[in-house]
Amino acid sequence: MGREKTVLVVGGGTSGNALTVLLRRAGIAVDLVEAKDDWNVRGSGITLQGNALRVLREIGVWEEIRAHGFCFDSVGLTAPDGTVLHINEDLRTGGDDLPATLGMQRPVLQRILTDAVRASGARVRLGTTAESITQDGTGVTVRLSDGTEHRYDLVVAADGLNSTTRAAVGIDDRPTPTGMAIWRVQAPRPAEVTRTDLAHGGPCHIAGYTPTGPDTLYAYLVEPHRDRAAIPPENYAREMSRLAEGYGGAWDEIRASITDPAQVNYTWFDQLLVEGSWHRGRVVLVGDAAHCCPPTLAQGAAMALEDAWVLAQLLTGAADWDDELLTRYHERRIERVRTVVEASVRIGQWQLDGVRGDLPGLMGTTMAALKELP
C-alpha cells in the first residue's frame, strides 16, 4: 500500500469546499485554510444552473440545496416598466433530472458546503493563510500564518480573484475591470416572482431579480462602474432605491424593502482567464483564481464547481500527480471556460456600447455547449 497523499486547499469558497469534499471521499488527506475567521459566510443571492447542480449532487448536498433554494426553468426578458417581452425556456444543462436553474441565498449555500467539509473529516484552519510556498520534485512545503509548517503532495489555489497563491508561484495574470458594476440586495419575494426576470435599459444597463427561497429573492442593478470611494456605504440603500425607481412590475414591491444599507452590496465586474498553464509544479489553480467573468450568464459558480469536479476526477484516478496530469486538467477546462468568459463579457459590452445584440441566441448557444459533461 502506498503512502497516503496529502493536499492543501487554500481558500474555503465554493470551489475549495467542493474539491475538499470530493477528495476526502476518495480517502485523500486534505487540509483547508481560509483567511476569513467566519469562513466567508456572507453575500446576497446566487444563481445556480443545471451544470452547477450536477456537481453539487456529486458532492452529496443536492437534496439540502433543493430544500433551501427555489427551482425554475425559464428567464423572462422585460421592458423597464415590467412588461414581459420574451420568455426563454432554459436548457437543463445538468440533465433532465435536474432543474434548469436554482436560486438561493449565498450564505445558505456556503453553510451547506462548509458543513459538508466539516463532515468529511478535512482539517480546517480558519483565519489562516499560506505565507510561503516552497516546492521541489516530490512535494510542497508551506508555512502558514499560524507559524506552523507542513508538507503536501499538492497545493490547490482556491483563494479567489485576487489569489495571493497564484502570484506566489509566478502566474502574473490579474483581473481587469469590465467597466460595469452591480448593486445587490436580499429582499422579500413578491408572490408573482417565480423565475429570473431581466430588464435591459432604463436608468441601468440591467435590472433583475432571482427567487432564492419560499419567501426571499435577491435583486440587482447593473450600471457603469463608479468610484466606490465616492459612495459612502451608509448611502447604499438610498442609492439603490433611487436607481430602482426606473423599474415597474415586481420592482415596486422590491424597492419598498430596500431600506438597510448593510444589506446592500456594490461590486465592480472583473474578467480574468489565465491563458497559459493553470499550474506551476505542484501548485494548481481552481475557480476564480484561474478565471472569472461578469455574472451576465450566471455561470461563475458553475465553472468553479466544474473545476473542482474535473480536478478531483483526475487526482483520484491517477497514481502519479505529475505535470502531465495537471496539464490534462487545463486542457479539459480551458475551452469550456473560455466560451463562458467571452460570452459573459460580450453581453456586458453590448450594454456598455448600446448595441442590441442577439441575447437569446448567445445565451442559447452557450448553454447548449454546457449541457455536455466537462
Rank of each mutant, 00 (worst) to 15 (best):
R57V: 02
T216K: 13
S132L: 08
H205L: 11
A262C: 14
L109T: 05
W309N: 00
E223H: 15
D172R: 15
V9E: 00
H330F: 07
S145V: 10
A100V: 02
L77F: 15
R280D: 09
L56Q: 03
E223G: 14
C292Y: 06
L285D: 09
R125L: 15
Y218P: 09
D358Y: 04
M104L: 15
T128K: 06
L314Q: 03
W39A: 10
V283S: 03
Q313I: 02
L109H: 05
L359D: 05
A343T: 00
A262T: 15
G45Y: 12
R106Y: 11
S120N: 00
V286L: 07
G208F: 10
R42Q: 13
V310D: 00
G201M: 06
Q135S: 11
P211F: 06
G300M: 02
V7F: 03
V345N: 04
D96K: 05
V108H: 03
V345E: 04
P211V: 06
V337R: 03
I133Q: 04
H330P: 04
L273F: 07
A343R: 00
G69F: 07
I182A: 15
D97V: 05
P107W: 08
T138F: 08
A199W: 02
D320I: 05
R226N: 12
G27P: 00
A319V: 07
E239K: 14
R125G: 09
V222D: 14
G160E: 10
I112S: 03
G2C: 09
V222H: 12
E58F: 03
Y266S: 08
V142W: 06
G13M: 05
I46G: 07
